[in-house]
Design a protein around this nucleic acid. Sequence first.
DNA 1: TCCTAGTCAATAAT
DNA 2: ATTATTGACTAGGA
Length: 407
Amino acid sequence: MKTAYNAYRCLAKDLDAYAMNPEMTMDIGSLHAGVSHEQDLMSSHSPHHSRNPGAALRIHQDLSVAPSRSAMVSSMASILDGGGGGGGGGEYRPELSLPLHHAMSMPCDTSPPGMSGTYTTLTPLQPLPPISTVSDKFHHPHHHHHHHHQRLSGNVSGSFTLMRDERTLPAMNNLYSPYHKDMSGMGQSLSPLGNGLGSIHSAQPTLHNYGHDKMLSSNFDAHTAMLSRGDQHLSRGLGGPAAGMMPHLNGMHAHPGHPPSHGPVLASNRDRPLSSSSSSCGAPGSGQLEEINTKEVAQRITAELKRYSIPQAIFAQRVLCRSQGTLSDLLRNPKPWSKLKSGRETFRRMWKWLQEPEFQRMSALRLAGKTSVQKKRAGPEQRQEQYTKEVASGFHGPAAANSSGHL
DNA sequence: TCCTAGTCAATAAT
DNA sequence: ATTATTGACTAGGA
């Protein structure tokens, strides 16, 4: 069953390139090709997973998340947990996926061999760089790392509408602060040491494309919509204003002997914007060449995960295609960009995720993992309904005020 | 062949 | 239930 395991991991690095490329909308055909190729490699050598035969299963479990949280957060949660652990036949195969242009499109998924027919080319289709061009220098066209192989996803079950919706509202007041706990540790004064790190610019995706049309998305659920607009401020909050409000900087994981500043990390002296990949549409390859302030990214990711109560395991697996432990480590001890090699890929993913409009973020979370196949088991499934309801009704949370006002 | 970077997965700690 | 640690293991490079 290690195979299964591998699958879940998706083609991490190599595929990344595809996934990340902003313009990515290549025909799956090509993608697919690449993948299969990967698969081969994969199968030929099985990494170290031998010790844990049940890996795949485990993961599955992880996928199931906690029940509902509260307010919009709950929606998030529901998305995450989705199908619950049921894991039927050990299948992890996500179904989703279509090539959304942005990063999250296909996190790790795979496409069933038979299904190669999904090319929802919404975007113009760019020449995508060979899989790993993304990385600066390392990465061979196909470096088969340890694991990866999965088929790309052919199903379009996701929601292609997504892209259009990204209109995130620029307006984000902190109207709803029920969730204030998150930012606690963000950048601000984390390091009195003088790292100078304090600057967390918010390079938010504000520019994505606030759509002109509010929700043409007849397709997706209300909640999605809501999610999409609901969040922006968070991100921004990190940047500046928020900083001021955080009373307890150590709130998050302050450990007695362990100041937030990860010590040696230096990459912060200069306050350069993380990566200014404006993304929207620039050059094909330009998305991830920039250097990323890993520390900052780590902090932001940490904050976002907290805000939405997204467990590391989920995020790691679905968005990063990495294990929980790995993510935890990266988050706590981010290495300076300059010292990273292949690990940059992981940070790029995180960065990308941060840049995505909420709604897309969620998609990523949602998609990547579960098999929606059996979503409905006999059990009482209220979660979904509940949040749906909430949303539908216009959502009561403070956040709603914001968004509803606008709409 | 040895060293490094990156991850995993099991396990400990919260 | 989540997150933090850590030993093991691999691909790549020198």
